[in-house]
Amino acid sequence: LTVHVGNVTYHFDNPEQAEEWAKRMAKKYQGQIHVKDGQFRIE
């Protein structure tokens, strides 16, 4: 699973971990989480 934050990409084996990280990053950067094809993108 991949989480994109700006132009930085993080890889996770565990979906719960990826989702948790995406939520934390979205809160930190006050962005929206977009989920597409098993990838999380924070914008």
Rank of each mutant, 00 (worst) to 15 (best):
L1E: 03
L1W: 15
L1Y: 15
T2Q: 09
T2E: 08
T2R: 08
T2W: 09
T2K: 07
V3T: 01
V3F: 04
V3Y: 02
V3H: 01
V3E: 00
H4F: 10
H4Y: 10
H4D: 02
V5Y: 08
V5F: 12
V5M: 08
V5C: 15
G6T: 02
G6A: 07
G6K: 05
G6D: 08
G6N: 12
G6C: 15
N7A: 10
N7Q: 09
V8K: 12
T9P: 04
T9A: 10
Y10W: 14
Y10A: 01
Y10F: 09
Y10T: 01
Y10G: 00
H11E: 06
H11Y: 14
H11A: 06
H11D: 03
F12D: 00
F12V: 00
D13R: 08
D13W: 07
D13M: 08
D13Q: 10
N14I: 08
N14F: 08
P15W: 14
P15L: 14
P15E: 08
P15I: 13
E16V: 13
Q17N: 07
Q17D: 13
Q17T: 10
A18D: 00
A18K: 02
E19H: 12
E19S: 07
E19G: 05
E20Y: 12
E20T: 07
W21F: 15
A22L: 07
A22S: 02
A22F: 06
K23D: 03
K23R: 14
K23W: 10
K23I: 13
M25N: 01
M25H: 02
M25S: 01
A26Y: 05
A26P: 00
A26Q: 04
A26M: 06
A26E: 01
A26V: 05
A26T: 02
K27G: 05
K27H: 09
K27M: 13
K28A: 06
Y29H: 06
Y29S: 02
Y29T: 05
Y29E: 01
Y29I: 06
Y29K: 02
Q30H: 14
Q30F: 08
Q30K: 14
Q30D: 09
Q30V: 06
G31A: 14
Q32P: 04
I33L: 11
I33S: 03
I33M: 05
H34F: 14
H34D: 06
H34E: 09
H34A: 09
V35G: 03
V35T: 05
V35L: 11
V35R: 04
V35I: 13
K36S: 12
K36P: 03
K36Y: 12
K36H: 13
D37N: 08
D37A: 02
D37C: 15
D37M: 02
G38Y: 03
G38D: 06
G38E: 04
G38V: 02
G38W: 03
Q39Y: 07
Q39T: 06
Q39L: 03
F40P: 04
F40E: 05
R41Q: 11
I42F: 04
I42Y: 05
E43L: 13
E43F: 12
E43H: 08
